[in-house]
Write a protein that binds this DNA or RNA. Structure first.
Length: 662
DNA sequence: ATTAGGG
DNA sequence: CCCTAAT
């Protein structure tokens, strides 16, 4: 048996909150709640436009692992870059079938990585590029974001059409938001004459053939013969004017009704190895099923266990076993094998531990978005880009590039398809009342428009709720996870307040609505610097998982494995304390007592955690993994376990009749 | 819906 | 964490 080497790539800025499957309880819930509807119509229906159309597309796409298929959305462009950072970018693309709008490639030049990219892509050295590499990465992508086409709202209450023109600004008369406002996402030719949307090689740095393996990603053009790849991070040497018709993307939303939706959004993040220098972490992590999705992988390639703590040989054993058993498995079961292969981590460059605290996909609209007041009293906005939270990916060295692409794609897709909703921030403050008009909120005012921001959030925002927050759990300040806030050298991150994601690791659910967002404090900062737009805090992944944002996300949700959320010491502490008090057979009570507000922790989870705690306490410290649990707690675990085991035995002696014969 | 255990 | 069986 060969130990499988896995490459860990921390995607700074991806924050991949692989949308966790909704808790069972949630999954059982009714389909579409009122809230869903409300949210679906939330701010500009960007959710539907952006998340729904773009991301979910990957759902049905075949699992292609070969780069030769040209179906991958994730591309690793520059392999010449040493071990250090491997920039990746998520780009909107269209494989012709409009199956997916995103793909990831890594051709972003980085400030500290100039030598690499410059070699491959001379263009990176030009002035326009320096912008990206230095402080304006995200900004650049903003323009990339093309939102357009017709999108029929599923709720059917209204139709919105957000369009993005290419270099030529265009306004759609059909664009309607709640019948009140028109949002035009415009991609304007920038001053430098750079156009983000163009055709063919002009658009992206194709110096490196690897960029577009197979068929070049392109938008579906009205003229089917014309492919319009959208790569924002590569600044075309010359401006390319594309007519609006050139950028039409067929929406898959409602096959019958949706005609076209264009909104490729691009985000650039850096893909980097989790550790420095050629350091490839060798881990055997993730359940074998995580990797099952990666086609063409040999048995040995499968990860062996999800606990990262099992003997290697289990890997093969399990992989084989699963592989076989899967064949005779009902679909319901089988689907579980195709789960996401991504884990979310703190993404810290040097951070070792996985930690999926912020389950929030808190994607934020990074970068500036400019707004324009049109003569029709319409508010025109240009959203430069949405930030995709950080992702953490692990993949065997033996995996193909294609599988890596797919893995990344899946991760991104999972995140985006998990039910995103759009949040609107003004002056750094979140606008929660969806019923207010842009006029009322001030969005339409010239002086306010620059402080407007959008965020992509993992879960539908709470509907406007009363001031009282009693209904929602609050986040404990403790257990703040610093690493989470790490982002790639993206200038926009400066503007974004990182701290917001901090507390997500807390076992106490945070309350999106009531918890003051860090953003609030920087309102003035946003205000003046249009570049620094929003930041999006909030949302706990949990919330995300609980209520699918829309039908699509719902489908996506199916079979989605819950994201792994290691227990924090604080949680362990709470668990231990509760068990000491209640015993080991009353998980329901333990849950209610200590994890009432931690919706993502079910009593089964607690029971399982206790099980592992007992195990952990029994093994040598050297064998333990993950965030170390204070020995003191482990001692208490053993003590409590012993005590309650004894109690249980006593009970059985007293009431043998209740004892089940084995 | 819970609990207990194996995977 | 998932999945099941048994309550």
């Amino acid at each position: 048996m060969v130990l499988q080497k896995r490459l860990d790539y921390g995607f700074n800025g991806f924050q991949v909150p692989v949308t966790p499957r909704a808790p069972r309880s949630a999954r059982r819930r009714s389909t579409i709640s009122k809230r869903d509807e409300d949210n679906s119509m939330g701010a500009f229906d960007l959710l539907a436009t952006v998340a729904g159309k773009l991301l979910l597309e990957g759902e049905s796409s075949p699992a292609s692992s070969h780069t030769s298929t040209g179906k991958e959305k994730c591309s690793i462009v520059n392999d010449s870059c040493p071990d250090g950072d491997k920039p990746l970018k998520v780009e909107p693309c269209d494989q012709g079938s409009c199956d997916r709008k995103f793909f990831v490639s890594d051709n972003i030049s980085q400030g500290h990585n100039q030598s690499c990219s410059s070699k491959e892509s001379p263009v990176h050295q030009n002035e326009s590029h320096s912008v990206m590499t230095t402080s304006n990465c995200s900004e650049r992508f903003v323009s990339d974001m093309l939102v357009g086409g017709k999108c029929k709202n599923e709720i059917g209450s209204f139709t919105s059409k957000v369009q993005a023109g290419s270099s030529v600004y265009r306004e759609s008369g059909e664009c309607k938001l709640d019948g009140e406002a028109k949002v035009i996402v415009k991609d304007e030719t920038n001053k430098r004459g750079e156009v983000l949307i163009g055709t063919g090689a002009d658009m992206c740095s194709l110096e490196d053939p690897m960029v577009w393996e197979g068929e070049p990603p392109a938008l579906v053009s009205s003229d089917s013969s014309t492919k319009v790849p959208i790569c924002v991070d590569h600044i075309p040497q010359k401006p390319i004017l594309a007519s609006r018709d050139d950028v039409k993307i067929v929406s898959r939303d409602d096959d019958e009704n949706s005609s076209g939706c264009t909104h490729p959004s691009t985000t650039t993040r850096y893909l980097r190895t989790a550790q420095r220098i050629g350091d490839r972490r060798i881990r055997k992590v993730l359940a074998s099923r995580y990797w099952k999705a990666a086609p063409k992988m040999k048995d040995g390639a499968y990860s062996n266990s999800y606990r990262d703590m099992r003997p290697i040989y289990h890997g093969r054993k399990n992989g084989y076993k699963r592989q076989r058993s899967q064949m005779n498995m009902p679909f319901k079961k089988r689907r579980l094998f195709d789960r996401s292969t991504v884990l979310k981590s703190n993404g810290g460059i040097s951070s070792e531990s996985f930690f999926d605290s912020a389950n929030a996909i808190s994607s934020s609209v990074a970068g500036q978005h400019s707004a324009f007041q049109s003569r029709n009293s319409h508010v025109k906005l240009r959203i430069k880009s949405f930030r995709v939270p950080e992702l953490f990916i692990e993949i065997p060295e033996t995996a193909t590039v294609g599988s890596l692409k797919k893995t990344v794609m899946d991760a991104v897709t999972a995140v985006l398809g998990g039910g995103l909703c759009v949040g609107v921030l003004l002056q750094g403050k979140k606008l929660r009342d969806d019923t207010k008009t842009l006029q009322q909120t001030g969005i339409s005012q010239d002086d306010q428009i620059d402080s407007l921001g959008f965020t992509l959030e993992p879960n539908p925002p709470h509907t406007p709720t009363p001031l009282c927050s009693g209904d929602s759990p609050r986040m404990l300040p403790c257990d703040v996870l610093q690493p989470l806030t790490r982002y790639a050298p993206d200038p926009s991150s400066e503007a974004s307040l990182e701290p917001h994601m901090a507390a997500l690791g807390s076992f106490i659910e945070s309350d999106h609505d009531s918890a003051p967002s860090p953003t609030d404090t920087s309102a003035d900062k946003s205000t003046t610097d249009s570049k620094a737009l929003v930041v999006v805090p909030e949302m706990s992944a949990e919330a995300l998982a609980v209520v699918p944002g829309n039908r699509k996300s719902k489908r996506f949700d199916i079979g989605q494995r819950r994201i792994r959320r290691p227990f924090s010491v604080a949680e362990v502490e709470a668990l231990v304390q509760a068990v000491e008090k209640l015993g080991t057979g009353r998980w329901r009570d333990v849950k209610m007592r200590a994890f009432e507000n931690a919706k993502h922790r079910t009593y089964v989870d607690l029971k399982d955690k206790w099980k592992t705690l007992v195990h952990t306490a029994r093994i040598s410290p050297q064998q333990r993994r993950g965030e170390p649990v204070p020995q003191e707690l482990l001692d208490r675990v053993l003590t409590a376990h012993a005590y309650w085991s004894q109690q249980q035995a006593k009970q059985q002696l007293k009431h043998p009749e209740s004892c089940v014969l084995v």
